[in-house]
Design a protein around this nucleic acid. Structure first.
Lengths: 250, 250
DNA sequence: CAACTTATACCGTTGAATGGAAGCAGAACG
DNA sequence: CGTTCTGCTTCCATTCAACGGTATAAGTTG
């Protein structure tokens, strides 16, 4: 039963890499016996690794398989040189995100030089309406997607209404970039631009996070846009990611 | 049946991220019908994504789950700053590998500045005896592991005997680093040093790949060793990776 | 237009997943 | 040093969900 397998793999809380069997069973909502059997099977195939005393973590083999054939590989490869350029020229944290559901999923990140490397945000998510990357992506989606998004939108924090959001998206669409006061750190700004593939579809967002006082949009935005165009050109027409967003056919 | 799931995920050839359903079925050794059902189920849970016309690729959600809880995360985070140091000081390709089975699995890599970013080697594997990283790792494994390795060793290419290999390992153990003529590119050298955790176990190897003529061991090795010690200190005693290599208990 | 390749739906059989009960460590406690 | 508790592991009879052959549809090629 594939559902169980997913439950086990997804049972690891963010950032936690090792779990106790009993805890894993509970988190996955599985009877201990079943979890035990499943873990053993998965471990035999290398998707999981089991240490002494019932400790469990994701397997190296799983990591290998996923990263070898990563759906984001082409995108990241195309983007990396340009992200390095931004990192060198602006000396700021640079990140790359794609749209998944109504959230921005961060797929790559470079820290500003000198700061401690922080891989934490990689594979992290932020809701569209609280991230400049999310806004940049959503503002360049087909109108049908935007409509659907706005219709279902409700801010759990109650800080922004659907109408305000519509205005934000419209503004971002016209300006060609999105900006937003930092969510995690209130003293920072996020600024992001869409990466358009050959068909003018926003397949990713390229963004920076900068300290509030250093806001120099005039310097940041053109650099980001230039880099984004470079990435888009490398991607070619094979939108790579977007074609799968379509209605599931299977 | 978990075996089928693994077969499907592992069916993607290295570097290929999208496959046709029929091709996937064949590669996985599954009846088309079964593959179809499995893919649909996996896609529902986000481990796979199915596009129009039976195209299949790994799911963003799978990528996210694996990279959020990556077994190599702690290691990579500890190593990144030092890898950047090496990259800046030596201006060479830097890579980080762990031992998995009798192969070195590359978990992180930085390209020399200026060269085109090449993420290809990440999640790649090289046999122990053809990679400096592999030799550096193996030469600092417990004697029992080395013995087991040497006993089963046979070079399919027939270029090196077990005895020569034993000498190589012994030399690497004494020198504290391993070097090897490039395998992929004959005009390059690989040089790697072990990263020892608090218990003096080699949990990783830090290496560079340099053009043949630029060989300056006197300059490279001390830098690598210094960085490796720095990484090891950051890892602390929690050997993180090695403790799982133990005999599977489940 | 015909012959083919490739994806999707259907469905009766069967074998493999299931999870409760019981056994076993090892640790914590008195 | 014995007791109890917690958490991992093994066993096994029941049952239910996976299986894959056949059939159909859709799309492609010669």
């Amino acid at each position: 039963m594939v559902d169980r397998v997913v439950r086990v793999i997804a049972a690891f809380p963010e950032g936690v890499s090792v779990l106790q069997l009993s805890e894993l069973a509970e988190r996955a909502g599985l009877p201990l016996t079943t979890a035990h059997r499943l873990v053993r099977q998965l471990a035999q195939h290398g998707l999981l690794e089991a240490g002494a005393g019932g400790s469990v973590r994701l397997g190296l083999r799983l990591w290998e398989l996923v990263n070898r054939n990563s759906p984001t590989l082409a995108l990241r490869q195309a983007a990396m040189p340009f992200m390095e350029d931004i990192q060198h020229v602006l000396n700021q944290n640079v990140n790359l995100a794609v749209l998944d559901g109504w959230e921005a999923l961060f797929v790559e990140r470079l820290s500003r030089r000198g700061s401690v490397a922080n891989r934490a945000q990689i594979a992290g998510r932020l809701a569209v309406h609280v991230s400049s990357a999310g806004l940049a992506l959503m503002s360049h989606q087909p109108r049908s997607v935007q409509t659907e998004y706005l219709e279902q939108f409700t801010d759990p924090a109650g800080k922004v209404t659907a109408e305000e959001l519509r205005a934000l998206l419209s503004e971002a669409a016209h300006q060609g970039y999105a900006q937003l006061a930092g969510v995690i750190d209130p003293d920072t700004w996020g600024i992001a631009v869409p990466v358009l593939d050959g068909r003018k579809l926003a397949v990713a967002a390229l963004g920076v996070v900068v300290p509030l006082r250093e806001v120099r949009l005039q310097a940041l935005v053109p650099a980001l846009q230039t880099a984004a165009r470079g990435i888009g050109r490398r991607l070619g027409d094979a939108g790579t990611l977007t074609q799968f967003r379509s209605t599931e056919s299977l």
